[in-house]
Design a protein around this nucleic acid. Sequence first.
RNA 1: GGCCCCAUCAUCUAAUGGUUAGGAUUCCAGAUUUUCAUUCUGGCCAUAGGGGUUCGAAUCCCCUUGGGGUCACCA
Length: 460
Amino acid sequence: MIVTRFAPSPTGYLHIGGLRTALLNYLWARRNGGKFLLRIEDTDFSRNDEAAALAIVEAFKWVGLEHDGTIEYQSSRLAIYQEYVQKLLDSGKAYKCYMTREELDALREEQSARKERPKYDNRYRDFTGTPPEGREAVIRIKAPLEGTITVHDGVKGDVVFNVADILDDFIIARADGTPTYNFVVAVDDALMGVTDVIRGDDHLSNTPKQMVVYEALGFPIPRFFHVPMIHNHEGKKLSKRDGATDVMAYKTLGYTPEALLNFLVRLGWSHGDQEIFSMKEMLELFDPNDINRSASVYNVEKLDWLNAHYIKNTPNDKLCELLEFHGVMLVSHDKREILLDALKERSKTLVEMAAQINEILVRPEMFDEAALKKGYKEESPMILKTFAEALRNASELHLPSDYHHVMEEVVAKLEIGFGKIGQPLRIALMGKLSGPGLDTVMAIIGVDETLARIEALLNH
RNA sequence: GGCCCCAUCAUCUAAUGGUUAGGAUUCCAGAUUUUCAUUCUGGCCAUAGGGGUUCGAAUCCCCUUGGGGUCACCA
């Protein structure tokens, strides 16, 4: 059985990069009928908060991811960690170190002055004497002193680290007894039965340390997949400064979960020439062994394109529901279908769509100056009046085509081009020169409102 | 700085050692649309550089350059 996990630290929201790793873990677990676990890494429990976990679950819910089992909080597993620290102490694989912070700092300074790598000098590694008075000990693990550690990574291949270059007897429990990150990660992953660790490649250099813990405790080492980071346009790790990094912000901005997930899964992974992936397809096709080795840049244009695609292909009922979040209530609108059909083709985001709906539904308060200059000519009032008259005389105006017939009649009668009536009419209806087809707009707002808007322009 | 990772169009990516280096997004042009958008068609744009290996290299090896990550009693 494949067991994966997502293990964020509690920042208060779900980061877009975090969502990607969560998605990949989710896909891989689900594809194999395995489990996808959620763990909150709050060993720095001064700032532990369940609100942070809730924020993550909320974001999961929005995009449709679901974790298995209960959420594990590291802050509530302290007793477990202490137990395993003790095991290592008992077996002689870890030891107490009485060095003070000051001594440590001094040592590091000396070493860097000598241009050596700062590392612990193992002074208490085999200490058997009497501990110095009044000092709280930290617990250090006995790391190998020489040789190499090889991480067999499903993305990067075999990565060989020279122990002398990267390791020392690192601290697994602080002076106050709380365990440190690399220790708890290994313990938790092992205890939770995690078989496949899919995480950002910023963790690659931590992996040898975690492997030291696995080995000391006799735990089987999981499969690792270190996926490349998502970068911003400067080629740096994505951070808060790069605009929307909170997943829920994408909801506010009018993106659909389908578009967001589709976008994220294509960063560093592909399946031939395919661009559009439904959740079902992702579940069938995703394999972490196929992930690219290189970092990718986060570019919004493709997200926009995907989002437009998904909006176009969303059923109107669903669209109607989504639009409510953006302040547009259409449930009871009788021309809803015409309206949504017309606008879903031309919206990149739900926010944009909501705005366009309002532009149609709400009578324009003013007429764009440039538009008037360009499209409202001397003969325009006469044409509009003729058209208004034709509308009043027409009967059974319901569909866009009904209105189109009236426009055709007027154009034929006055022997003018479509543009002569189109431009002023568009200004009357929309207040500007762009927008959906006029026949569609009129069908949506109805004859009375159409006449009222024409009147408003004639009187302005 | 030590260690590790990475390198195909601007961007996301494809290419059993043999393709005219393919697709998508962006951009540009044309068509469609009374307008804008959509849609359709077409176009521009890439194997970082240098050495090898090979009949043949984007692909394998080495070097250079560039970029990123990581080096805590943070996670």
